[in-house]
């Protein structure tokens, strides 16, 4: 039985070279290593979390990750204990699955994702911010609107044809990845004011949104996932948010 999920619609930002052109990456790194590494790291890790958390597991994509052995290192400048745990879990998982994901493994991943984030019924780790931060623990709340408005201010909307809450953990990570990407691009053209604005935005989005709930959500994932892949992603999400908030000196 095929698995449906929301269509992956890439955002074509016109600055594809950031992701697509490795020489560009190297050049930038030469100029301001620490600075660029931080945003590149945030961009790719959050970008990966977006894909891994927003939709059902994508077998081909996961096989690509295994092939590239990406979990051998986590490209964030300073590694927190959460990230160490994440790397251990994810690389351990990757070692076991190094020959590619077979049917049984894929079904386990699919079932784990379904049970954690899809339902039906009770969810061990509901992937929507308002469930964690709203007093009524419901979806489609003021928090959801606030997140939607953050996206709108950066010219983004949900790609889904259905009415889904904007505050899905995967979408929030995708947004953070986007802001990191914009920061690098602004830095490339030495637009100081824009960089400042973007850093301010990242600090704001982290403190108003992700930092308020992602750590608790990640704990629920880590405590309830049955596969090391999603357990590892829970730790990765937690570590990424903590790392970013440390970098931006942010508190919830």
């Amino acid at each position: 039985m095929s698995v449906c999920c929301s269509p992956a619609e890439p955002i074509l930002f016109g600055r594809k070279q950031i992701l697509g052109d490795n020489t560009g990456m190297e050049k930038r790194r030469g100029k301001n290593m620490d600075w660029v590494v931080q945003f590149e790291g945030q961009m790719v890790v959050c970008g990966l979390l977006a894909k891994a958390l927003y939709g059902m597991p994508d077998r081909d994509w996961l096989n690509g990750l295994l092939q590239d052995r990406i979990f051998d290192t986590i490209p964030l400048g300073r590694t927190l204990p959460e990230l160490t745990t994440a790397r251990e879990l994810l690389s351990g998982w990757a070692d076991i699955e190094s020959n590619g994901i077979d049917d049984a493994t894929f079904i386990n991943l699919r079932d784990d994702y379904t049970r954690l984030f899809v339902g039906p019924g009770e969810l061990p780790a509901p992937p929507w911010e308002s469930v964690y931060t709203n007093k009524d623990r419901a979806v489609f709340q003021r928090e959801t609107v606030s997140v939607k408005n953050w996206y709108l201010r950066f010219d983004l909307v949900l790609a889904s044809e259905y009415n889904e809450p904007a505050d899905h953990i995967g979408l929030e990570f995708g947004f953070l990845a986007h802001l990191a990407e914009l920061t690098i691009a602004a830095s490339d053209i030495r637009d100081g004011a824009e960089v400042k604005r973007l850093i301010h935005a990242q600090r704001g989005f982290l403190s108003q949104h992700l930092l308020k709930w992602a750590p608790r959500w990640a704990d629920d994932v880590a405590n309830n996932a049955r596969t090391d892949f999603y357990r590892g992603l829970g730790w990765l999400a937690r570590g990424t948010v903590m790392e970013a908030s440390s970098f931006f000196d942010t508190e919830a």
Partner: peptide, 13 residues
């Protein structure tokens, strides 16, 4: 990996 996911901001357009 992110490139193969279709780019940054999966699920947004």
């Amino acid at each position: 990996a992110v490139r193969n996911a279709g780019g940054i901001g999966y699920g947004l357009r």
